[in-house]
Amino acid sequence: MAVNYQIDYLKQLEYESIYIIREALSQFTKTALLFSGGKDSITVLHLLRKAFWPAKVNIPLLHIDTGHNFPETIEFRDRIVEKLGLTLIVKKVQDTINAGKAREEKGLNPSRNAIQSITLLDAIQELDLDACFGGARRDEEKSRAKERFFSHRDEFGQWDPKNQRPELWNLLNGRKNKGENFRIFPLSNWTELDVWNYIKSENIEVPSLYYAHERNVFNMNGVLYAVGEFMQPTANCLVENKKVRFRTIGDMSCTGAVLSEADNNDRVIEEIASSTITERGTRVDDQKSDASMEERKKQGYF
């Protein structure tokens, strides 16, 4: 029996998230988890298991596949789907390009980060989803600081940040008109450090990319890229073998590595706590302009 009735903050965050997930499962008819194989969507998956228990997670994972993934992410994705007996739906950005609905960026190492929103919105429509769970957090990026738990999207899949529904107490309003849908963000109040403390305390498995390992990397415009099928150094870039890890996992073409010795959860937590840059600081896609995340989010981005 509890000695007193105070609950530790991490447990409070967990309960808040489970409550939000259960509200969404009750209010919407067809939902999916947007699953990238990154630590945040893995954490949401873990919380979904708790919210569904003792039933199994019976909503599909939806992966918008840019084709520029780290092989480790795909291997991890397939393994966890197999292990937990989940349904995985993969929608490929390449198919969107082939259908003439999106155009590849020009130049060396093109990024598919922006055009994946088109694939995502098509998938939402095709699968007739009325809500998608995502792992976005308010502390990640300034335009996300004002996101709601239940984030409304109009019939074009657009986010209108100036016109959001107020969210009071824990009363979540998922009502909508035909064609509209919602993004559900159960981790809104979590920070990067909270996620890692939770991964550690719940013993959640995440891709090996998050821990320090040796890898061939090259420095281009101050970003440390991993050499891979979709990421080739230009002639004057020096490829070096370094001990690195990734703080976020996006496409190989827009995710930078950090030099690190952190090869387990404790050391990762220690590293983040003493880090002087944010995790999005390693993301090229966020640095195109001061409002790049907001612009992409309005277009339907994650």
């Binding site: 308010r138 502390d139 990026e141 300034k142 335009s143 996300r144 600081a145 004002k146 940040p161 100036k162 959001q164 809104s188 109040n189 920070t191 001061d290 409002a291 907001e294």
Partner: peptide
Amino acid sequence: LTDGLTAEREQGITIDVAYRY
């Protein structure tokens, strides 16, 4: 730091409740 939206920056006003940790 908290006025993350373009409209807020342009107009120099805060539109919405912001959360900080």
